[in-house]
Computed example of a mutant assay.
Amino acid sequence: MRYCTRDDLGNAIPLMTLTQLSNDDPAALQPNESVINDSVRQAEELADGYLRGRYSLPLAQVPTVLRDAVVYLARHWLYLRRPEGALPDAVKDSRKDTLKLLESIRDGVVTLGLTTGHAVPEPGEIRVRARRQRFGAASWARYQ
């Protein structure tokens, strides 16, 4: 399931800017949908990398916090396609904040609040087994 739609990205980036960021033809009037799809795919895969150890993927429902995170990451990727211009501070800051959020989700500090999901055990989990107890409280009471 996709974490964000084309409309979600269109709400975050004005049409003219989206056209300039995604289309290599300076005279283009419409965004290049293939490039936009690549930016969303890359952002979703990055988000999945953080979520993989904590949640079972693919997610049945997409929380808005995750949708917004993918939009910010895709927007940053689109801006990076134009190295001749400086990245706006808002784009750089939103990416940095989004990565911190994804780290917090990965570490269990922030949850996605999914009702159907459950935390997946961390890799390398250690299980311990012990023998049955031979001496209980009654046995030790006789030695007093």
Rank of each mutant, 00 (worst) to 15 (best):
V120S: 04
I36T: 04
L102E: 00
D107H: 08
A119Y: 15
L57C: 13
D7F: 14
V128E: 10
A141T: 10
I105Y: 05
D93I: 07
E125G: 09
L87R: 07
S104Y: 14
Q30S: 07
N11S: 14
E122D: 12
G108W: 13
P88W: 08
A138S: 11
G113H: 08
P14A: 01
L114F: 08
E122K: 08
S34G: 14
R54W: 08
L102K: 02
L99I: 13
T19S: 00
R81S: 06
R2T: 05
L101P: 00
A43D: 00
S139K: 06
Y55D: 01
Y50M: 04
E33P: 06
V120T: 12
A86M: 10
V40K: 03
R81D: 03
S22N: 03
A130I: 09
T17P: 00
L29I: 02
P58M: 05
S94W: 08
L29T: 06
Y79I: 02
Q61M: 11
L78R: 02
R106L: 07
L59S: 03
R106C: 04
L18C: 03
V128F: 13
V110S: 05
C4P: 03
E103D: 09
G53H: 06
Q61L: 12
H76W: 14
A130R: 13
T19N: 00
A69D: 00
L101F: 15
T115S: 15
R106S: 13
A47T: 03
V128D: 06
T64R: 08
G136C: 04
K92M: 12
R127C: 09
R52P: 01
F135Q: 10
G49V: 05
Y143S: 12
L80V: 09
V91F: 11
D107Q: 12
A12F: 06
I126T: 09
W140D: 11
K100Q: 07
L73S: 03
R54Q: 11
G113A: 08
R41N: 09
R131P: 10
Y3Q: 04
V109R: 11
A47R: 15
V120Q: 07
T111L: 10
Q42A: 14
V128A: 10
R127E: 08
T5H: 13
M1A: 11
Q144Y: 07
R134W: 14
V62I: 11
V62M: 06
R95A: 03
A119C: 10
D38P: 02
D97S: 14
K92S: 13
E122S: 12
V91P: 10
Q30R: 07
L112S: 03
L87N: 08
V70Y: 02
T115N: 12
C4I: 02
S34Y: 13
V71W: 01
R142L: 11
V110P: 05
L114V: 07
A90R: 15
L59R: 09
D7G: 09
S104R: 15
E44T: 02
Y50R: 05
Y72W: 15
E103M: 12
T5L: 08
T17V: 06
P123K: 14
V109H: 12
D48Q: 10
N11I: 10
R2A: 04
S94K: 12
T5M: 10
V120M: 05
L73A: 09
R75F: 04
L21N: 00
D24P: 00
K92I: 09
E33S: 15
A119Q: 14
E44I: 01
D7N: 15
P31C: 11
L112V: 06
